[in-house]
Simulated scan of single mutants.
Amino acid sequence: MRNISDIIEGYLKAIIEKEDNGTIEIKRSEVAEKFQCVPSQINYVINTRFTVERGYAVESKRGGGGYIRIYRVQSNSHKELIEHIIAGIQQGATNTMAEDIVFRLLEEEAITEREAGIILAAVDRTTLPYPLPDRDVMRARILQAIFMTLLYKEIE
């Protein structure tokens, strides 16, 4: 059985997909009321499921007429997407960031399910028995090497 966060995520993604421009504007309180949950649950879903690594940008305006705007960020090519990801992990990559990045590459069909499994196994916290922040730096270096290989393969 899916939990409330999965249901809210699915609902928001379905609305985004219906929009021609890939953008939605919501009121946190209205979505919370629809799902009979606290508004902080909506914040949690947006902060964890609609991240840059997953291909979304979020902006919000607080106050009485406030809103949360969620954009689906589309890249023009797999090459552009991979270059953007490499640039975004220069300082390190957490396990969650790595999972989100791989999920996005899989979703955009830049990698296969098999490649996704291999990448995740290579950068899992159990594979990298180093203390933080060394582990996140090592994970980013491994991801960069893998993505550079994918990038050059894409160019061929």
Rank of each mutant, 00 (worst) to 15 (best):
Q90K: 14
Y67Q: 07
G66V: 00
N95K: 13
V73Q: 13
H84Y: 06
Q90N: 12
H84F: 05
V58S: 03
A93S: 15
M97S: 10
S77D: 05
I68P: 00
E80P: 01
E59V: 14
K79M: 06
Y71R: 13
K79T: 14
R72S: 10
N76M: 07
G88T: 06
H84G: 13
A87N: 15
G65E: 10
Y71T: 00
T94N: 09
G55Q: 12
L81T: 09
I89Y: 09
G92T: 04
Q90Y: 06
Q91G: 02
I82N: 01
Y71W: 12
I68G: 06
Y56R: 00
R62W: 01
L81P: 03
R69L: 05
G66T: 01
I89G: 02
G65C: 11
A98T: 01
A87K: 14
A93G: 03
R72T: 05
Q90C: 04
Y71D: 10
G55Y: 13
K61C: 04
R62D: 03
K79N: 07
I70H: 09
H84C: 04
T94S: 15
G55A: 08
I86S: 11
E59A: 09
S60H: 00
A57W: 04
G66M: 02
G88A: 12
R62T: 10
N76W: 08
Y56P: 02
